[in-house]
Design a protein around this nucleic acid. Structure first.
Length: 280
DNA sequence: GTTTAACCCTGCACGC
DNA sequence: TGCGTGCAGGGTTAAA
């Protein structure tokens, strides 16, 4: 799950879950459920820090979701490759790989599901949160006001890295993952292996605009759902941005702009998709 | 500093 | 049909 999916989730949670009081928290007894709350010593301790509190607001930091509680503590969610939140009720049996069920006083619940267990859920005080290096390292948010073109130009010039790994680096810029970084590079007309400190001002500007445009469009489309098992929103509904993907997952298919077959390359342990004609 | 490999997990598609 | 292999939206760590 990348920035657009997390942001869609944040907006839905803000509307639907903020203001609700937590009545009960169930952490399944499976090994993977324990993995989901691995920062906590026991299931009991995790639950105790949530029960009785109201969720007051929902924020996003990069790919992290922060649900602030009325006591001041924060429930942090990170989704990894396969994690997701799903709204449910007691009448609906939890799907496989449901690790945590948070039940609300007003009825209904919030479920954390994660087959591959790269995601996690934990509660932290503001003090603990401030000291957490994962969150401290989350870089500038591309949708934030302070993400300006001159700032971005400076950051790129400061580094000497290939663009693809740099865009994936959450400490450089937050929120992009494998899908959107490829889409952004295509939209900017830049290759995955271009060095960050060799871009012209015009190229920096194209990259800057591409990041914002791709992410905004993806949010508008409510995220990318590649197949049924993949990302779905808080209510189980798929997004629609997969219909607008230009390169990701399109190996061998003609480029939507120039008809040249889309190619792939292995970089940073991930597959990158690009058009050899449109990107240089 | 940058890059690479291994690792953390389950599920699925693919080739034999 | 069954089985091994590799890959999948994430990230960390150690070593080169």
């Amino acid at each position: 799950m990348e920035l657009p999916e997390v942001e869609v989730l944040r907006r839905d949670l803000e509307r639907d879950v903020a203001g609700r009081k937590i009545r009960a928290v169930e952490v399944k007894s499976s090994r993977n459920a324990m993995r989901a709350i691995r920062r906590h010593r026991t299931r009991k301790e995790f639950a105790a820090r949530l029960v009785g509190h109201k969720i007051t607001r929902v924020e996003r930091r990069g790919k992290y979701l922060l649900l602030t509680l009325d006591g001041g503590d924060v429930l942090v969610a990170h989704f990894g490759m396969s994690g997701r939140f799903l709204r449910g009720t007691g009448r609906v049996a939890p799907v496989q790989h449901t690790h945590v069920v948070i039940t609300f006083q007003q009825g209904g619940d919030l479920r954390f599901i994660d087959p591959r267990t790269f995601g996690e859920l934990f509660v932290a005080s503001p003090d603990e949160l401030g000291k957490l290096k994962e969150l401290q390292h989350v870089a500038i948010d591309p949708l934030d006001q302070v993400f300006t073109w001159p700032t971005f130009q400076y950051l790129l010039a400061e580094r000497a890295s290939k663009l693809k790994p740099l865009l994936l680096d959450q400490r450089f810029i937050s929120g992009l993952g494998n899908i959107y970084s490829d889409e952004v590079l295509f939209a900017a007309g830049l290759r995955y292996d271009r060095m960050s400190d060799t871009l012209s001002s015009q190229e920096v500007r194209r990259l800057y605009r591409a990041i914002q445009e791709v992410l905004q469009e993806a949010i508008k489309a409510r995220g990318t759902t590649l197949d049924d098992e993949a990302y779905v929103d808080l209510y189980g509904k798929p997004g629609a941005y997969q219909l607008e993907l230009k390169v990701y997952g399109r190996a061998g298919q003609p480029c939507r702009r120039c008809r040249t077959p889309i190619e792939t390359v292995r970089i940073s342990q991930r597959t990158s998709y690009f058009c050899p004609q449109c990107q240089s």
